[in-house]
Design a protein around this nucleic acid. Structure first.
Lengths: 234, 234
DNA sequence: TTTTTGTGGATTGCATGCAATTTCTGCAGC
DNA sequence: GCTGCAGAAATTGCATGCAATCCACAAAAA
């Protein structure tokens, strides 16, 4: 097909399968950096610096700022650029209240729409998470915890609820990342998951929703408590 | 201060108070056009054409595409550009289920957090909406209906829930716009609002949440019904 | 000393240019 | 008539240039 090879520089070829635009790559990088605390709250996101760090031009970078601003991870002030959004206890409260509402709705629907296969999958995840809890592996526990919550929501068969949860998720993770839960809360969490799963199996929508809502709110309370301690300590 | 006046053209000075970037202006315009059906589902959003129509360059226009894609109003396909998202009955169902969940949570919190002033304001809005219903003014009825729902949510004092609702809102409006409710449903709606307001006044969180949830779901059902009729007719 | 005013440099916002990809078009072959 | 396929035209994605704006800091006025 006679392609003329004029362009010379291909700094590093990305995986040919991934065809995402640079704005998505940038958004993913920044999102992770913000969630994991690598970029501190209030930090300025200078376009020049970041475009050089990420190896892209300012145009796709600016597009990614808009996305992250819509997710509430960065504040965008006209003519003053982007800053990493701060995370105060009030917002954490709001976040977990909202998540509780969304996940409750998801669980209520899931109780009536989960397939047998999905229930088995949840059972399997519950087994794994109890193992990880026993072995004390926080990293993998976190991962499995996310899987469970997302699987329940997916079971609602409601793409909008799933999207709403995805929208919230980075900020929730950020809060979780900053304030790890106490081991005690951790233990409680595992058993709450067991109860939720039971309610889902029985198709008890009300109960599943209520249990999940309380579970999320309790998680939030635990995190806010740690969060305040951390603030006071600092 | 010796500024050299080189630039000449100031096509139309916008209100000096409004300092929004062009990407926001573009997003607002396109959002309205999509919600009101001026841009039909599936319509291609060519960058060149739209940038000329809106009188801006492609850069801020592309930024607005990203925002609208995050809201679910446009689909963004790599190397193929933006199209107005289609709206099928399944998505409408998902939208109203999600809205019901979010508004329920809002109402539950509002029942415990509404101030006396806010309750009075809601009372006033309820009075107005009943008047507009009596006079048959659909336009103003719609407006007041939005006000009531947003006021209840604002009463939750939860910015994340409010933001989640704002995120959903354009798509809900689009559905409402395409499929007007029956006069019968309209009448029911007014009385449901009355009951919700009563529950809020009594501080009955459970009841307020449940009533509002049902109200939204019923509205959704009515719209989906009209929606299917319209699809079948076409 | 404190406040105001100017000025240079950095930064943002928008427009435009260019290469890569997709889509359209015309034409040969079946 | 339909299919396949070069080549052209249009379109997207990204980079870069330039004017407008903001910011830090120093000098002047109160």
């Amino acid at each position: 097909m006679g392609r003329n090879r004029i362009t010379v520089s291909v700094p590093q070829m990305t995986n040919p399968i991934s065809r995402a635009g640079l704005h998505d790559v940038a958004a993913d990088s920044l999102r992770q950096m913000i969630v994991e605390g690598e970029l501190e709250p209030g930090a300025r996101l200078g376009e020049k610096v970041l475009s050089e760090v990420l190896g892209i031009s300012r145009t796709p970078l600016r597009e990614s700022f808009k996305l992250l601003a819509a997710e509430g991870l960065v504040d965008l002030v006209p003519n003053k650029g982007a800053r990493v959004a701060c995370l105060d206890p009030d917002e954490v409260r709001d976040l977990f209240e909202a998540a509780a509402g969304i996940e409750r709705s998801g669980a209520e629907l899931a109780a009536e729409r989960l397939t047998r296969d999905e229930l088995e999958r949840l059972d399997q995840l519950q087994g794994e998470i109890e193992d990880e809890f026993a072995s004390g592996n926080r990293e993998r526990y976190f991962r499995l915890n996310q899987d469970i919550h997302q699987s329940i929501l997916a079971g609602s068969k409601n793409d909008v609820l799933v999207a709403a949860h995805r929208w919230l998720f980075p900020r929730l993770e950020r809060a979780r990342y900053q304030a790890l839960q106490s081991p005690e809360r951790w233990r409680h969490s595992v058993s709450e998951h067991r109860d939720i799963l039971l309610a889902l199996k029985e198709g008890d929508a009300q109960r599943a929703g209520q249990l999940l809502s309380r579970h999320v709110l309790e998680t939030g309370r635990s995190i806010i408590a740690n969060f305040r301690d951390r603030s006071n300590a600092a």
